[in-house]
Simulated scan of single mutants.
Amino acid sequence: MDAIRYDFRSDTVTRPTEGMRAAMAAADVGDDVFGDDPTVNRLEQRMAGLLGKDAALFVPSGTMSNLLGLMSHCGRGDEFIAGQKAHLYLNEAGGAAVLGSIQPQPIAHLADGTMALEEIEAAIKPDDSHYARTRVIALENTFGGRVLPVSYMTAVAEIAARHGLGLHLDGARAFNATIALGMDISTFVEPFDTVSICLSKGLGAPVGSVLIGRQDLIDTARRHRKMLGGGMRQAGLLAAAGLYALDHHVARLADDHRRARRLAEGLARHEALTVSVPDTNIIWVTVAQEAAEGFDRLLEENGIGVMGRYGSQRWVTHLDISDEAVDTALTLVDQHFA
Rank of each mutant, 00 (worst) to 15 (best):
P191H: 11
A26C: 05
F80D: 00
E293T: 13
G266L: 10
S186H: 14
P16C: 03
I4V: 15
W315I: 13
A251K: 10
G62T: 03
D255E: 15
A161R: 15
D37R: 05
E301K: 14
S61R: 06
A155W: 09
G202I: 08
K53H: 14
A55I: 01
K226M: 14
N41P: 04
F143M: 15
A245Y: 03
E44T: 05
Q103N: 11
A325F: 11
G231C: 07
T178K: 06
N66R: 05
V207C: 00
E44I: 02
S10C: 04
G171A: 12
L169M: 12
V326Q: 00
T178H: 00
H224Y: 02
H87M: 13
D128K: 08
A239D: 01
R133C: 08
M153P: 04
M232V: 06
Q234R: 04
H130A: 13
I212V: 15
I321R: 06
G113C: 10
I124R: 08
T14H: 01
T220H: 11
Y6T: 12
Q103M: 07
A96T: 05
A25T: 06
V207P: 01
M47Q: 02
L68H: 04
S10R: 05
L50M: 11
M20P: 04
A97L: 15
L273E: 11
L67N: 08
L263E: 06
D2P: 15
A161V: 09
I197L: 07
C74I: 13
D247P: 09
A180L: 07
I321A: 03
T194A: 11
A157I: 08
A260P: 04
L43W: 06
E290R: 13
R5Q: 08
S276P: 08
E92F: 02
D320S: 13
D279P: 07
D219N: 12
I282H: 12
V195I: 08
E293D: 13
M307W: 06
H318P: 03
L263Q: 03
N91D: 10
T328K: 09
L273V: 12
G35K: 07
V40G: 00
T280D: 03
A116S: 09
E92S: 09
H87R: 13
G100M: 02
L237R: 02
V40K: 01
V13L: 11
V287Y: 03
S61H: 01
G164S: 09
M71C: 11
G62C: 11
V210A: 00
T114C: 10
L211R: 04
D128R: 14
D219Y: 00
G166W: 02
I81P: 07
E119H: 15
Q234W: 13
W284Y: 09
W315S: 03
E118I: 09
E140A: 14
L57M: 04
A180K: 12
P60W: 02
E271T: 13
A123W: 01
V326Y: 05
